[in-house]
Design a protein around this nucleic acid. Structure first.
Lengths: 183, 183
DNA sequence: CCTAGATGTCAACAATCGTTGACTCGGGCA
DNA sequence: TGCCCGAGTCAACGATTGTTGACATCTAGG
């Protein structure tokens, strides 16, 4: 019997590529199915709806590496996980660009806010601990997201052309300042 | 003779409010005209097209205050201009959220990239001057955009509830680190 | 007053959106 | 071999999109 699994995989791949870079509302199911070389109706069949397909791409996201790292090496782990957001192969890192691409979305904005608050800010501030933990967590994420934004979305020349070592030094500099905030 | 000016103003106001927060493609002309209490057809009449209306809202943006400030007080001016992005009345500051809301847009993304590169990164790095000016400019903007993102878009609790003085201290801390980057 | 031109209204257009149901096709099982 | 059910195809639906042209309305200038 023919298997539906490869078709679902093709749909998921296309959906992830498009949803995560252009945002939910800016992508049509026909674009996705066309890119996947698959019929439009199969989205409803296998994922229920466009929303269901998007939700399926979210279900694949692994927890952020830095949250599992040694607390003393939090900075290193955070920087490391952001040194390859610029490697198009790195799915985990691209999850952050997914948040940037969908936070504005009229249908998914609230969903994204929850993911950031509960999946990033809350566990990160718990890991940081001590005084002003939540502020430091938010500032660290601000630094990381800001650098990702400049590089991937705004494609600023000075950063987009930099080597991994250079970009890592820059991110570490900003991130260290965020963690060192004392008010 | 009846004046069309107030109608154009109402359209521009609605358009700015919606385009700048939800992004170009996520807003329909009918939403805008309904909010403005005006007929749909008047968009085509007075601004040519939806794109023309969006472009008209961009034409109103004044240059960034910090770019005109005393070079020695660049940090203070940059921080100051970002202490009220959180005041809904401050149009200038909201221009930054407009960039965040539209960078993802499939139709306007390239336009926004140009605005950031030519309107922010280039003049800012010229003002900073010296070694690594462009990197520092990009990092400063990353810090500012990151903080705006955390507060306005992700609405992280720790920042969204902070007073102006607190948020100013946080932004200054990150921004100073960005400007102090030496590689 | 009365007309010309600007202002505003209304309905419709073609295109695209997400979704649905009826249909054909294909291969494992009895 | 023949049946059956899941996989895949196709056309259509109602809704919404941006845009247009014909029409009504109003006011300034002759």
């Amino acid at each position: 019997m023919r298997k539906s699994t490869p078709t679902k995989e093709k749909l998921l791949d296309s959906a992830r590529n498009l949803f995560w870079t252009r945002g939910y509302s800016n992508v049509s199911v026909r674009q996705i199915t066309k890119a996947a070389g698959v019929d439009v109706a199969l989205v409803s069949r296998y994922f229920g709806s466009k929303q269901g397909l998007f939700e399926a791409t979210l279900a694949e996201i692994p927890p952020w590496e830095a949250l599992a790292a040694d607390p003393q090496d939090l900075l290193g782990a955070a920087v490391e996980s952001f040194s390859h957001p610029f490697d198009p192969e790195a799915d985990q890192a691209n999850a952050f660009t997914m948040l940037l691409a969908n936070i504005i979305d009229p249908e998914m904005g609230d969903r994204i806010k929850d993911m950031v608050q509960q999946g990033l800010v809350a566990p990160l501030s718990k890991k940081i601990g001590g005084a002003r933990a939540e502020e430091r967590a938010a500032m660290l994420l601000a630094a990381l997201f800001g650098m990702a934004l400049m590089r991937k979305n705004f494609q600023v020349n000075a950063l987009a052309g930099a080597s991994k070592a250079e970009i890592e030094a820059q991110i570490r500099h900003l991130a260290a300042a965020a963690l060192g905030f004392e008010g």
